[in-house]
Amino acid sequence: MDGARCAEQSGDMHRREPLGGAEFAPETTYLNSASSGLLPRRSADALRAALAESASYGTMGRDYFAAATASRAAFARLLDVPAERVALGSSVTVQSAFVAATLPEGAEVLAPEGDFSSLVNPFAAHPGIKLRTVPLEALADAVRPGTALVAFSAVQSLDGRIADMAAVREAARAHGARTYLDITQAAGWLPLPAADFDFVVAGAFKWLLCPRGTTFMAFGGDFGRGAEWPAALHAGWVAGEDIGASNYGLIQPAATARRFDEPYAHFSYVGAEQSLGLLEELGVETVHAHNTALADHYRAGLAERGLTPRPAPGSAIVSTPGIADAEDRAAAAGVRISVRGGLLRAAFHLYNSTDDVDRLLALLG
């Protein structure tokens, strides 16, 4: 169901009903997708079936590779990148540590101040890397000769600000720097130019509605297309070109980005296959229109109450100072939001409605 149809069914072009139909029936008013997403019914059903199967076939199931392969392909379609350029992992932190290890001794990494720790801390902790941070708005202008990598989130977790991805990409290209884009707070609702960046990572348990333990890394740029792939530093048996011959001893890494796969958290990817399928059916553009309309409705309600959120135009995340004490009141009323950095953070996704927004606004007084 697209955004126009859901508005028509509500009888008011300014009101929106949830997308996804019977896939979601939460007991709470859930406005906390920036922390973690709700699991669709189809994903929960697939997980229950996989758990039952494991009692007879082990925790790798009858086909350990099927769900992982399907999830890789679905994520690639969502981002419009080739599946052979997508690797599967477990966390953004591990992927950041991998990217850090691809850089030469003394490399400068440029990142926004206050970006999410899973993205930036592995660079700060890596010996020989010089991490430099600047305000998000100054990121493109701060790229300079000698900058080896620009690492940043497409959408800031704290307050929902959307980076000027095109400007950063062009500045990095002009100075010969590579780019590492974290789309954990963007993938699933914000249309993204993923192929324009060298490394693109997504923790999929938020807006992509997957179980925890599901992470994707897409490789853009010239990797495997003239430039050699980075060293497969954590390659195990699933990363081998011939998986059947990769259980023991040294392996030959796969010719594709699968060379960077971590062993799959099987149940997580069983759920991911179904969740990503739902997002494909709905379409990111439809979800984007829905989410941002709800966020704009919330901003208008805040303004009527004399409240001013942090500026984050076009974002599905709205963070507001001065009302952090509303979190407990909201939780008692069954409304799930979060507080980050003293800001009350609300995040609007496909399973939310205008009524959900109004419920939160009423609790703010």
Score class of each variant (00 low, 15 high):
Lys206Pro: 12
Val238Phe: 11
Asp198Thr: 03
Ala218Ile: 10
Glu241Trp: 05
Ala187Tyr: 01
Gln185His: 15
Gly224Asp: 12
Trp229Thr: 03
Ala235Pro: 14
Ala194Val: 14
Val200Thr: 13
Gly240Ala: 15
Phe197Lys: 01
Phe223Ile: 08
Asp242Leu: 11
Ile243Lys: 15
Gly221Thr: 06
Trp237Thr: 14
Val201Pro: 06
Phe216Met: 12
Gly226Tyr: 01
Gly221Pro: 08
Arg212Phe: 13
Gly203Arg: 07
Pro191Ala: 09
Gly220Met: 02
Phe223Glu: 09
Ala195Asn: 12
Ala187Ser: 11
Phe223Val: 03
Arg225Asn: 14
Phe199Gln: 02
Leu208Glu: 10
Cys210Pro: 14
Ala194Arg: 00
Gly236Tyr: 01
Phe223Cys: 01
Ala232Pro: 09
Asp198Asn: 02
Gly226Glu: 05
Leu233Arg: 07
Asp198Ile: 02
Ala202Asp: 03
Met217Pro: 04
Met217Phe: 13
Ala235His: 12
Ala204Ser: 10
Gly188Trp: 03
Phe223Met: 05
Pro191Gly: 04
Leu192Pro: 01
Leu209Arg: 15
Phe219Gln: 12
Gly226Asn: 02
Trp229Lys: 03
Pro211Phe: 02
Gly244Gln: 03
Phe205Pro: 03
Gly188Met: 11
Leu190Ala: 07
Leu192Arg: 01
Trp189Lys: 12
Gly221Cys: 07
Tyr248Cys: 03
Trp207Asn: 11
Asp198Trp: 02
Trp189Met: 15
Ala195Ile: 15
Pro191Leu: 13
Pro191Lys: 05
Leu192Asp: 00
Ala218Trp: 05
Pro211Tyr: 12
Ala202Arg: 00
Leu233Gln: 11
Asp196His: 12
Pro193His: 10
Pro230Phe: 00
Gly236Ile: 01
Ala245Glu: 06
Gly236Pro: 00
Asn247Tyr: 04
Val238His: 10
Val200His: 04
Gly224Asn: 08
Trp207Pro: 03
Gly240Trp: 08
Ala232Gly: 02
Phe205Met: 13
Asp196Tyr: 09
Gly188Phe: 06
Trp229Glu: 11
Ala232Trp: 00
Ser246Tyr: 06
